[in-house]
């Protein structure tokens, strides 16, 4: 299998975008909690991305991506509708195990709002009372709140600066939800590691089972490289095949965050190298178009 076509795209903010990629077989197989590994180009790196949604009728996989590094920025620039991804493999990881919760809390922070959505939907389909807590830095970064309202019985929107919903982090949102609903029996939290850590700490005193989805660095995504190993209690697990979902109360988040910084220096170099190349290409394009304007006879 090769050449995976981007069939739809939506830009949520200057740094967040959504791609819908055609892959009917994967759309059929995907379950909430799984992820894919994407290679944008033949020379690209393999990056893991959580499956934000899948449409079995249309045969598409939805990915929500934040442009932070070279690869994701390059994809933001190049992956327009009709573009092809060089590789996309999945669905990887063990699907989320949805308990028999009667009242579930689905928490998404920033980009994590996307992958927690199919879980909220699954809880709703299983007949649970679903409370959504979604958090963003400010009002302008909010996305999918309408989708959340369609599957949740209650939605709490949190923003760091208070520009929309309640002021505070999702952990504050969780506390409020628990105050109102002391009988919540399960929580799913997805987002940056620091946010998931906050969520796990918020639910720990109440003993609410809290599942988090971990996003360590990985290469193959099939258990072969061991780059994605995480500390869960006293054990070492590979997030790609043993996860990516783990009990948030057992995860060593500090270890995860330290390991995510493994290639910080290299990532910065790659981004600079790429930005420089882009700038030069742009200049060259401008020069070319300028010369073609002044001297059309040349062609």
């Amino acid at each position: 299998m090769s050449n995976f076509e981007v069939v739809a795209r939506e830009d949520f903010s200057p740094v967040t975008y959504l791609l819908e990629v055609r892959h009917p077989l994967m759309a059929k197989a995907a379950k909430p909690g799984q992820f894919v590994i994407v290679m944008a180009t033949e020379h690209g790196e393999r990056i893991p991305l959580t499956i934000a949604d899948f449409d079995r009728d249309k045969g598409t996989i939805t990915l929500v991506i934040q442009a932070v590094g070279k690869t994701t920025k390059e994809m933001q620039q190049n992956c327009k509708v009709g573009a092809m991804l060089y590789a996309m493999v999945g669905p990887m990881g063990a699907p989320s195990v949805l308990g028999h919760a009667k009242k579930a809390l689905c928490v998404g922070g920033g980009l994590g709002v996307a992958p927690v959505f199919p879980q909220a939907r699954a809880f709703q389909e299983s007949g649970a009372y679903v409370i959504g807590v979604i958090g963003f830095r400010n009002k302008d970064l909010i996305f999918w709140d309408d989708k959340f309202r369609s599957v949740c019985d209650e939605v709490i929107v949190c923003t760091d600066d208070g520009s929309a919903g309640m002021k505070g982090t999702v952990a504050d949102g969780i506390k409020r939800a628990i105050e109102q609903h002391p009988d919540i029996d399960e929580c799913v939290a997805i987002g940056p590691p620091i946010m998931m850590k906050g969520c796990a700490e918020a639910t720990r005193p109440f003993g609410i089972k809290t599942m988090v989805s971990l996003n360590p660095l990985m290469v193959d995504g099939t258990g072969m490289c061991g780059g994605c190993r995480v500390k869960i209690g006293d054990e070492i697990k590979f997030a790609c095949v043993d996860g990516p979902d783990f009990d948030g109360h057992k995860v060593d988040f500090d270890d995860l965050m330290a390991r995510l910084k493994r290639f910080t220096a290299e990532e910065r170099v790659a981004l600079e190298h790429w930005s420089d190349t882009c700038r030069l290409m742009k200049q060259a394009d401008e020069l070319a178009s300028a010369s073609s304007k002044t001297d059309p006879e040349l062609y």
């Binding site: 590789a87 493999v89 669905p91 990887m92």
Partner: peptide, 10 residues
């Protein structure tokens, strides 16, 4: 057929 994770895709 590359990019095919047997077990998970089918």
């Amino acid at each position: 057929e590359c990019n095919t994770l047997v077990g998970r895709l089918f």
